[in-house]
Design a protein around this nucleic acid. Sequence first.
DNA 1: GATGAATGAGTGTTCATTCAT
DNA 2: CATGAATGAACACTCATTCAT
Lengths: 197, 197, 197, 197
Amino acid sequence: MFIYYKIMRFKDEAKQDAIIKATVKLVNQIGFASSSVSKIAKQANVSPATIYIYYQNKEDLLVSTYVDIKQKLSEAILKDFDDTQPIKDILRGFWFNAFDFISSYSDNFQYTEQFANSPYSSLVDKKEVEKYFEPMIEIIQRGKEQKILKDVPFDILQIFIFYPIMILANPRLCANFDCTEKNIEIAFNMAWDAIRA
Amino acid sequence: MFIYYKIMRFKDEAKQDAIIKATVKLVNQIGFASSSVSKIAKQANVSPATIYIYYQNKEDLLVSTYVDIKQKLSEAILKDFDDTQPIKDILRGFWFNAFDFISSYSDNFQYTEQFANSPYSSLVDKKEVEKYFEPMIEIIQRGKEQKILKDVPFDILQIFIFYPIMILANPRLCANFDCTEKNIEIAFNMAWDAIRA
Amino acid sequence: MFIYYKIMRFKDEAKQDAIIKATVKLVNQIGFASSSVSKIAKQANVSPATIYIYYQNKEDLLVSTYVDIKQKLSEAILKDFDDTQPIKDILRGFWFNAFDFISSYSDNFQYTEQFANSPYSSLVDKKEVEKYFEPMIEIIQRGKEQKILKDVPFDILQIFIFYPIMILANPRLCANFDCTEKNIEIAFNMAWDAIRA
Amino acid sequence: MFIYYKIMRFKDEAKQDAIIKATVKLVNQIGFASSSVSKIAKQANVSPATIYIYYQNKEDLLVSTYVDIKQKLSEAILKDFDDTQPIKDILRGFWFNAFDFISSYSDNFQYTEQFANSPYSSLVDKKEVEKYFEPMIEIIQRGKEQKILKDVPFDILQIFIFYPIMILANPRLCANFDCTEKNIEIAFNMAWDAIRA
DNA sequence: GATGAATGAGTGTTCATTCAT
DNA sequence: CATGAATGAACACTCATTCAT
């Protein structure tokens, strides 16, 4: 009986994965408005009813998918994070990691952008998402304290070091930008010029 | 009196205005997904059918509203534009004008952000919208030629001089940023550091 | 004042004609269900409101159009009607006249067929329509009395002498029938075989 | 029990039947034009959405219903069909069978007549419907070959042997005809006079 | 007489969700 | 756990009709 309980608890991860993938794909293609549960179900090759086994309702599906991707993004950015390096190198590492993630999973990234700019964003537990990005925040904080970065409000620093790469890598906003490594390096140096003390 | 006889009933501009305002308000409040035509109509105090006198369909309404706002934004940014000033001053002018517009009409601005990050954006005639922003583009171009700005791809320059202010002023993305004139000036100087040669 | 009254009374016949033609054309093309007043108005190059000057409502428009065509059909059938000819010749005359009308105005005819088979038909003042066809009815009656035609219920005679030609000439029911004069003559002789004593 | 677990919920034939019946009844009462999906649903005691489980759209519902009835009509006409009887007897059998069907299911029959005279008729796969009536067509063909029937185009024969009964039995077209067995026999003999060699 | 703007009520269809299996 | 049938409510959109001009 006890074992049975555990078996039931672990839902089919492959199925859940298919649902998330279908959600991202469909929302990017046709938007939140037209992405119905049954269309997502069809795309994921499951029954609409099955989705309600994994998520409470449509809202839960969309929000969970967002948080899921944000977590993966934070993990990607923190790859090879070495606390002992100089701050500039650490930030360059973040910058290139972010670029890699966005390029490799542009679908996932586009989903988060659309989500963040929609009223759905108010449903997210922001504290939870921020937690994923804490190490990055600490680095900026440290840079400020060590007077390596400008002594300006935190939000402004954050915007200059994180957003430009997101916009550059977003094909919806920057359709014809040439995403070569060289250009990414150029852009990073400009961001660095903006924030360095 | 004779002429009067020949006059037909004309479209009512106040009505069209109410429809646009209702669209922006509702889309910001509940998102594209939930903003149905009938809800917009109710908000605008007209019949759903009336909307179809002014717009071919829902898509047309949403796209037209977007283009409309973009035009107004461009006009706002170009206010007091003086071609003879130094480039830095011109850009600071743009920056503060943009900030004023976004602050005053944050609803309108938020609408465009949500729109630009949705699949609807692919329906816009991009050439037409770019036309509104031509003078700004020319200034950047001139800055590059005169070696006042860095010699880097155009898109990168554009991102650093236009996007940070948009993100800062967007309460959805930057909820707790303190939008004082001083902070805006600080941010401008950082953007300038990023792009200046 | 009196003259003015008369001027107003005579509505623009060209306009009314355009409305009827548009009605017939549209109803044949897309059916009663989809033939809206505004579509008919557009086809007739008038405003929807104009239609309500000539007809009380949509129903009135459809019924009037039906009666109008029926009257024209009866007139066509009675062309060159010569009471003194032998009955067979008179009926052949009817038969060929009907065929000519249906061929020349197949749109109009198709409209009446669709109309007669729809519940709209119950709205027609049948007595009025029958009046148009009285001479034909009298001929059949006379044929019965003179024992030239079979002594069977009137409706049966009528069906054999009037309907076959209508079905043959109706492209909706008889798409690939070859409407040569010879075939029409053959069909008439068969009808005559059916009804002659 | 194990098998039971795997059984899914199946489509309910009673429900589909109710939908068809409701469609026929309503279309006869108020016509194609006014027979909306929601009215049909109400008449059938199901939700409008349920209809879309059984049919792709309204058109599919109407066309399927038509084809369905046509098939039943053909089966009814072919009841007790005995290939070895004389052709006249076979045709009389068809004639009376058709009359029986039309009398018993006059609603169904009226539906097909209204349908055939509407633009919907162009949506039917005519080949498929003709297949149902093949045996009847073969008999006429045989009658022609054996010189029992007149040597005239096939369509003309068909019209005289099949349509008069349909018109006689159609209350919409022949409101006050007295449908006694005797009158039907009279009419058949007239049809026979028309087609026999 | 003639118009096009305006509308409440309706259209065909899809929605998010539930439920028996 | 997983399903497809089922649905009331909502969707985008069009309707017949009216009205000020």
